[in-house]
Design a protein around this nucleic acid. Structure first.
Length: 575
RNA sequence: UGGGGCGUCGCCAAGCGGCAAGGCACGGGGUUUUGAUCUCCGCAUUCGAAGGUUCGAAUCCUUCCGCCCCAGCCA
C-alpha cells in the first residue's frame, strides 16, 4: 500500500458559505455540540424551486456536520392549510431524495405546551388580552417613523388576563373580538416588538387538531419555541425574517424552554422569468391559467418533476447558486444548464419526427426492409443498443428539407446528400406536390455502401438528420412549453393579481399531435426521460402517458447554435 | 425623514490587509453519423462612489449614492 494523498475535496463537495463557516465555528468553540436543522413548510400550497434551495441548505448542513434535519409543518393557520398540501410536500421531499430524522413533526403537536407558555407569560405580566379591533390596533401601532401608543387594555391584571384568555380558549368570543399580545414596547423602532399578537381566535377546523382549539398561536409565538422543543441548534430562514429575530430571542429568554436555538437568515432564491411565491402560484392555479400545481410550466417541485427535470438537477442547481445574504435573481440558464448536464449523461437517445415529411427511397426495394442497430448513447456503450426498422418509406422532419439552400444549411437539399442518423446516406432527387403546391413527398435514392461507413467517394455529407420508418412509426403527442411569464421579473411586476395575470405568456403551451416516433418509444414508462436526437429531452408524462397513447413533455431543447445562425439569416432576409 | 439588511464581470459567486477563484451566459478554434456532447482559447489594471489609514486596501475608517425588507388577528 502506498501512502495516498488525501483528496482536498470530496466529490460532492459543496462550496463553503457563511452558514457552514458559522456552524464550523460553533462546533469548534463548543457553542454547540451537535447540529440539528429543520425544514419548516406551511402546508398552504405546493413547494417551489425556492423551497428546494431551503431544503438543500437545511438537509445539506445536517449531513455535512453529521447532524439531523427535521421536517416540521408550520401549521398554525387552519384557514389556509390542508392535508392535501401536507401529502404533496412529503411527496416532493422524498422525490428530491431527502429523508428527515424521526417522525414528521407538526407545530400543532406543541399547541398544548404553547398554550401553557402563553399563560406563563400572562402570569409574568408579559402578555395581555387586548380588545382593540384590527383597525384600532393598526392605528395604535404607529408608523415606520412614529412610535406606537399603549393599548388601553395593556394594564389589565394578570388574573383578569388569565380569565379572559381562558374564555377565548373556551370559544366564548367571536373571531376578532380580542387577541393575546406580548407586552414588550410600543415605541420600539422595530415594529415587530410593538406588543405583537401571539394568539388569535380562529374558528376553523384544523386539519390535525380538528375542533379542539379555537385560539391559535401566531408564527412568532410558535416558531422559536418549536425549534427549542425539538432541540434545533441552527434555525435557518430567509432575510425577511431578520426583523423577527429579536422577537424570536425574546420569547426564548422569557420562557423556560429546554434549548436555545439561534436563527440565521440567507437570501431567498429568485429565478428570472418565473415567480417563487406560493400565493402567486396558487393564484395561477385558481385562475385556471395552468393545469394544477404540477403543471409542467410551474416552478413547483412537482411541476418541474412532471416537466422532466431530474431531482439531481434541482439539487445541483440549488448548490450552484450559493448561500449568501445578497438579494439577487439567478438566470434561468443556470437551472437549464443543470437540467441538460444530467440528462446528457443519463438519457437514452431515440429518434422522433415532429413534423413528418415523407421520403421514398426509389432504389430500396420494399421487400428488403431490415432491422438496423443503434446505440442508446453515443458516449456510453454500457447503455446498450436497440433495433431500428428501416424501409423504403420513411419520414423526416419538414424542417430538415429545403429545395434550395446555402452551404450553411447542413441538412437535406434537393440534389444533395445527407446522412440519416444510424443509417444510410441518401440523395434527394425530386419532390411531389399536392394541389396546393405543398411538398408532400421527397423522392430519394440511398447509398447501400454507407451503413456504418463513409461514402466510397470519400465525400462525407455535412449533415445528419433523424428519421423513422413509415411502416413502423408510432404516433405520439408532444407537449412543448415556453416560459410561463413574458417578462423577466414577474416577481417585481407588482403584488396585485391583475399585474400577475398580465405578465403571463398566453402561448406557453403548444401541443403537437402528429409526431412520429421510432417503435422502441412505445415501451417508455411514465417519467422516463429520453433525448430525442437533435431536438431535446422529453419525458413520458407522469399522468397521461400510456403505451396505447404515448404523451411526452418537452423538458428542454438541446443547446442550439444553428437556431441562432438561422434566425440571424432570416432576420436579414438571407435565407 | 424610524429600524433592519445588501452592493465584486451580463447573471450567480469566492475573497476575511499582500496585489481579483470558479460556474452560467457570451465570442472564437478543434473533434464529432446529434448544428448536441467533449475539448481548447478569450472574457473585471478592477471590486457602488469619493476621501482617509497603510510599504501595501475589494478587504480597515469616514462620508455619500443605490437597492431590498418591516406598519397581517399570514408565514
Amino acid at each position: 500500500m502506498t501512502a495516498e494523498i488525501a483528496p482536498a475535496t470530496t466529490n460532492q463537495n459543496k462550496a463553503n458559505n457563511f452558514l457552514r463557516q458559522r456552524i464550523a465555528d460553533d462546533l469548534e468553540t463548543g457553542t454547540t455540540k451537535r447540529v440539528v436543522t429543520r425544514f419548516p413548510p406551511e402546508p398552504n400550497g405546493y413547494l417551489h424551486i425556492g423551497h428546494a434551495k431551503s431544503i438543500c441548505i437545511n438537509f445539506g448542513l445536517a449531513e455535512a456536520f453529521g447532524g439531523h434535519c427535521h421536517l416540521r409543518f408550520d401549521d398554525t393557520n387552519p384557514e389556509k392549510e390542508s392535508q392535501e398540501y401536507i401529502d404533496a410536500i412529503i411527496d416532493d421531499l422524498h422525490w428530491l431524495g431527502f429523508q428527515w430524522h424521526g417522525d414528521t413533526r407538526f407545530a400543532s403537536d406543541y399547541f398544548e405546551q404553547l398554550h401553557q407558555w402563553a399563560k406563563l407569560l400572562i402570569g409574568k405580566n408579559l402578555a395581555y388580552v387586548c380588545d382593540l379591533s384590527p383597525e384600532q390596533a393598526r392605528a395604535y401601532r404607529g408608523s415606520l417613523t412614529e412610535a406606537g401608543r399603549n393599548s388601553p387594555y395593556r394594564e389589565r391584571s394578570a388574573d383578569e388576563n388569565l380569565a379572559l384568555f381562558e374564555k377565548m380558549t373556551a370559544g366564548e368570543f367571536d373571531e376578532g373580538h380580542c387577541v393575546l399580545r406580548a407586552k414588550i414596547d410600543m415605541s420600539a423602532p422595530n415594529i415587530n416588538l410593538r406588543d405583537p399578537i401571539i394568539y388569535r381566535i380562529r374558528k376553523f377546523r384544523h386539519h390535525r387538531t380538528a375542533n379542539k382549539w379555537c385560539v391559535y398561536p401566531t408564527y412568532d409565538f410558535t416558531h422559536g419555541q418549536s425549534d427549542a422543543i425539538e432541540g434545533i441548534t441552527h434555525s435557518i430562514c430567509t432575510l425577511e425574517f431578520e426583523d423577527h429575530r429579536p422577537l424570536y430571542e425574546w420569547f426564548l429568554q422569557q420562557l423556560p424552554v429546554p434549548n436555545q436555538p439561534r436563527q440565521f437568515e440567507f437570501s431567498r432564491l429568485n429565478v428570472n422569468y418565473t415567480v417563487t411565491s406560493k400565493r402567486k402560484l396558487k393564484h395561477l392555479v385558481d385562475a385556471g391559467l395552468v393545469d394544477g400545481w404540477d403543471d409542467p410550466r410551474m416552478p413547483t417541485i412537482s411541476g418541474m418533476r412532471r416537466r422532466g427535470y431530474a431531482a439531481q438537477s434541482l439539487r445541483n442547481f440549488c448548490d450552484s447558486t450559493g448561500v449568501t445574504r445578497v438579494n439577487g435573481v439567478v438566470d434561468m440558464s443556470q437551472l437549464e444548464f443543470a437540467v441538460r448536464e444530467h440528462h446528457n449523461v443519463n438519457a437514452p437517445r431515440a429518434m422522433v419526427v415532429m413534423q413528418p415529411l415523407k421520403i421514398v427511397l426509389g432504389n430500396y426495394d420494399a421487400s428488403d426492409a431490415e432491422q438496423l442497430r443503434a446505440p442508446n448513447h453515443p458516449q456510453n456503450e454500457a447503455m446498450g443498443s436497440r433495433s431500428l426498422p428501416f424501409g423504403r418509406e420513411l419520414y423526416i422532419d419538414r424542417e430538415d428539407f429545403r429545395e434550395s439552400a446555402n452551404k450553411k444549411f447542413k441538412r437535406l437539399v434537393l440534389g444533395k446528400k445527407v446522412r440519416l442518423r444510424n443509417a444510410y446516406v441518401i440523395f434527394a432527387e425530386s419532390v411531389v406536390r399536392d394541389e396546393q403546391g405543398e411538398i408532400v413527398e421527397v423522392h430519394c435514392s440511398y447509398d447501400p455502401a454507407t451503413l456504418g461507413a463513409d461514402p466510397p467517394d470519400g465525400v462525407k455529407p455535412k449533415g445528419v438528420i433523424q428519421w423513422v420508418s413509415a411502416a413502423h412509426a408510432v404516433g405520439i403527442e408532444v407537449r412543448e412549453y415556453d416560459r410561463l411569464f413574458r417578462i423577466e421579473n414577474p416577481e417585481r411586476a407588482g403584488s396585485d393579481e391583475q399585474a400577475l395575470l398580465e405578465s403571463v405568456n398566453p402561448n406557453s403551451l403548444r401541443v403537437h399531435r402528429n409526431c412520429l416516433a421510432e417503435p422502441s418509444l412505445a415501451e417508455a414508462r411514465p417519467e422516463q426521460v429520453f433525448q430525442f436526437e437533435r431536438e431535446g429531452y422529453f419525458v413520458a408524462d407522469r399522468h397521461q402517458h400510456t403505451s396505447a397513447k404515448p404523451v411526452f413533455n418537452k423538458t428542454i431543447g438541446l443547446r442550439d447554435s444553428w437556431g441562432k445562425v438561422d434566425n440571424q439569416a432570416s432576420n436579414s432576409g438571407a435565407k
